[in-house]
Each structure stands twice: as C-alpha cells, then as structure tokens.
C-alpha cells in the first residue's frame, strides 16, 4: 500500500507545531498502524531527520499507552480497538491519513504525538487507599460478591486509562475515565469504606486538572477501546451527589 501521512510535528511543549506530509510506500496491509509508523521512522532516521515521537508499550491493546487521533477519531476508524491493534487493512491504498495528538489542556503535548497524561495518575492518586485485609488467599475469598456485581465492576476496571474519552469529547471531559475508576471500587464491598471521600476527591482533582464537563454526547463510549459504558457516568453522578449530601467532609 502507498499512503500519504499528515502527521503533527511539534518539537516540544512550548514550540509551535504543524502538520507535515510524509508519503509512505510498500506498506503491508497486515502491519499494525504503529508498525507503519516504525517504517516511517526508519526512513526518517536514514535520511537524518528527527523520527516522529509517539507513545506505545505493550502493542497488544492492554497497556493504554498508544494515543493517536487518526482521521478525526481517537484510535482510528474501528470500534473497541486501540491504535496498536488497528491494522493497515482498515485503510485503502492511496489514502491520506491525518494523525494528531490527543488535544486537551490537561494533556499538554510533550513532543509530536506524545502527550502528558499524568493528570490521570493524579486523579487516581487523589482517590487514596482502599482498606482490604487480605490475609492469606483463603481469606480474600471470604467476602462473597455476586457474579453480576463482579462483572459490572470488572467492566469498569477494564479501563486502560488511554485518554481516548478525553480526546473524543468535544469538551475534553474525563468523566468516562473517572467514572470507571470510581465504579470499579464503588461496586465492590471492599470499596465501600472510603467510597464517599474517594469520589469527592477524585472529582475535585478532575476539575483542578482542567478537564471539561460532561454533556452526555456519548462520544467517549463510542470511541473507548474498552467500550466502557455510560452507565458508569450516571453512577459517578449519583455517587458524587450522594457523597456531597451525606459525607462528613466539609472542606473537599
């Protein structure tokens, strides 16, 4: 396949960036999108140019590192798929593909296609600890959890924190991410002890990081590689408003 790439190039966070056009030739349809970028970077390095910086790690769709905004959609045209699991067979020979970094005030560009997503880490850290007295392996199973609750909690825990929800949202809202992180603990008995304080602190941190607010367009869910449900956002709203009304925290 021969393709034309328009890639966002930006030296660093303070530099002005621009879209640069690169033709790529002889791309196999079986290559992943990132492997295609590897080919491009090899070429750039051979020519003595600066390779395109992009985030990646496991390349098997579970780490949440890859983050490319491809032709107007985070992680490209497929549903429920990360950029690393997107293959070139999803494109046609001769296509022009525009690749941009996630755009959000809370995700400043580090270089080219890499953005700083530590805002997510700070939100998780603000949630604090969970009181779990595990003891040995047998004790861990002493608290019985219904299959349905366990499955629901797991569906929230499937969030890999890639930030596609923020990238897709017209408000750059992190509500889907935060709702998944709140839900995975709120649904389980082990998460109950600190539930109120946790949701209050995590929402406060989310707002402090400068994410937008949720207008329920559903774009986040549609673009989420793990297809996290909007039900978690409703649960977050419920948990937050309930906690605000009933917790003992007057200063969060």
């Amino acid at each position: 396949m021969n393709l034309t790439l328009k890639v966002w190039r930006q030296k660093n966070g303070n530099a002005k960036g621009e879209l640069k056009t690169y033709p790529v030739k002889d791309i196999s349809p079986d290559m992943s999108f990132l492997e295609m970028f590897d080919v491009l970077n090899e070429e750039l390095i051979t020519k003595g140019d600066e390779p395109v910086a992009f985030d990646h790690d496991c390349r098997e769709g579970i780490c949440g590192m890859c983050s490319m905004y491809i032709n107007g959609r985070p992680h490209g045209p497929l549903q429920g798929v990360t950029t690393c699991q997107l293959h070139m067979r999803s494109f046609k020979d001769g296509d022009t593909i525009v690749v941009e970094p996630w755009r959000a005030a809370a995700f400043p560009v580090i270089k080219d296609l890499t953005v700083d997503r530590t805002a997510f880490d700070r939100i998780i850290a603000s949630g604090g600890y969970v009181s779990v007295n595990t003891g040995n392996a047998k004790d861990a199973n002493n608290i019985l959890i219904g299959k349905e609750e366990a499955d629901e909690a797991f569906s929230a825990a499937a969030c890999i924190g890639c930030g596609a929800c923020v990238a897709a949202c017209k408000n750059a809202s992190a509500m889907l991410f935060v709702s998944a992180k709140v839900s995975q603990l709120a649904l389980l008995p082990q998460g109950q002890v600190e539930a109120k304080t946790r949701v209050e602190k995590m929402v406060a941190q989310m707002d402090a990081e400068g994410f937008g607010s949720c207008t329920n367009t559903g774009a986040c869910h549609a673009e989420c590689p793990k297809e996290i449900s909007l039900e978690h956002i409703a649960r977050l709203n419920r948990e937050y408003l309930g906690a605000k009304l009933s917790s003992n925290n007057v200063s969060i």
Partner: peptide, 23 residues
C-alpha cells in the same frame, strides 16, 4: 469547556461517535 481544549483538531469526525444535536 472551551478552555479545556485550547488547541483544536485539524480533522474531526464527530458524526462517527455522536449525534450532531448532542454536540
């Protein structure tokens, strides 16, 4: 919400993931 995305995208495809009136 505008402040949350100071630099916009060159290409967006909102219709692929949401209804125009919701946006």
């Amino acid at each position: 919400n505008k402040k949350a995305r100071p630099v916009g995208y060159a290409v967006t495809n909102g219709n692929a993931n949401s209804k125009w009136y919701s946006r």
